Simulated scan of single mutants.
Amino acid sequence: MDDSSMEANDRIRAAANFLLQSPPGEINDVLNDIRNIISDDDLLQEGIQPALREYNIEQFTVVDVPDTNHQSIISEAAREGDSLESEERFLDPRSKISFLFDHLSLEASDPVPFEPDETHEPYRSALEAASLSYLKAHFTDGVTSVFSPKDGSSRYVIQIVANKYNPTNFWAGRWRSEYIVDLTSNRVSGKMLINIHYYEQGNVQLATSHTVSFDIPPAVVSASPNTAASKILALIEGEEGKYQISLSDTYQEMGEKTFKGLRRALPLTRQKLDWDKVMGYKLGAELSGSKPAFPNS
């Protein structure tokens, strides 16, 4: 491999790392900036495909499901187990459709019906209905998908993602949560992940995660699928509510204590600096109120 090829590969690897760190809703902006650096669309597209796939799956990218009026989540849980990465298919349990997904254009194609597992479908469907009700009550723009157990397990997967993009005011955010409902151990384990980007006259990103785990009460385990699903989502609602309150308390404390401890709110003069007149200030005179150090200045 010659030096130019090695340099091109290094640039592609760097580009892939940049893509994986893209803030919510801004991956196209990052990709366009990278195009200007690489200046080779064919090489770029080939080299970043694995990074795009990883990003879409990790970030719970949503896609319009063909022949429906709703969206579904692209994730590892949604991936059809026997599909090859080159012709990767994903499942939308809500419509019972399998489809191909293009990680670059973010479009679904070639919808094909599939038959769900009759053993698991009643409980999965009940969890889905309860998740949709929860989503409607607590998320302005959110998508949820609920998946049946795979590989002979008894673990149902509930996934939720909500995106909010506000480029006019220079911020964007994403909420992701995933819960494993295990009917063998009668336990729910999950995680919540939040990414926020604020970039008005600066560049600040927040990435935080929180894990939870709790038992499913015996009365819930023995209840009908619809009743059990509603109770499980009520427990999830409680956990997410507590985490949201803890985040609000943390931000308030950071604003009142942490940030104030990092720097002075005002300079020693206790007055804000007039930056429009900064070139006219005489150091030691106007800033400190003392006589000029140089009388003829």
Rank of each mutant, 00 (worst) to 15 (best):
residue 95 S to Y: 14
residue 202 G to I: 02
residue 53 R to T: 08
residue 30 V to M: 07
residue 179 Y to G: 01
residue 27 I to A: 08
residue 157 V to E: 10
residue 262 L to E: 15
residue 66 P to A: 15
residue 74 I to R: 11
residue 176 R to V: 12
residue 113 P to W: 02
residue 290 S to T: 10
residue 10 D to G: 10
residue 201 Q to L: 07
residue 43 L to Q: 15
residue 237 E to Y: 00
residue 244 Q to R: 15
residue 171 W to G: 01
residue 62 V to R: 14
residue 197 H to W: 02
residue 10 D to V: 01
residue 108 A to M: 10
residue 68 T to W: 14
residue 62 V to Y: 11
residue 2 D to G: 10
residue 97 I to C: 14
residue 295 P to N: 08
residue 169 N to M: 02
residue 28 N to I: 11
residue 174 R to A: 06
residue 90 F to L: 00
residue 149 P to C: 00
residue 143 V to F: 11
residue 206 L to P: 01
residue 284 G to I: 14
residue 15 A to K: 09
residue 175 W to A: 04
residue 141 D to I: 03
residue 274 D to Q: 06
residue 127 L to F: 03
residue 78 A to D: 07
residue 255 G to C: 08
residue 5 S to R: 06
residue 137 A to G: 03
residue 236 I to R: 00
residue 225 P to A: 04
residue 241 G to V: 05
residue 80 E to V: 10
residue 86 S to D: 03
residue 271 Q to N: 04
residue 219 A to D: 13
residue 140 T to A: 12
residue 104 L to K: 00
residue 19 L to M: 12
residue 100 L to W: 13
residue 73 I to S: 04
residue 203 N to C: 04
residue 123 Y to H: 01
residue 185 S to W: 06
residue 62 V to W: 09
residue 7 E to P: 00
residue 128 E to S: 02
residue 76 E to I: 02
residue 161 V to M: 14
residue 244 Q to W: 05
residue 255 G to K: 14
residue 82 D to N: 14
residue 222 S to R: 09
residue 244 Q to F: 14
residue 297 S to I: 13
residue 218 P to Q: 03
residue 126 A to W: 01
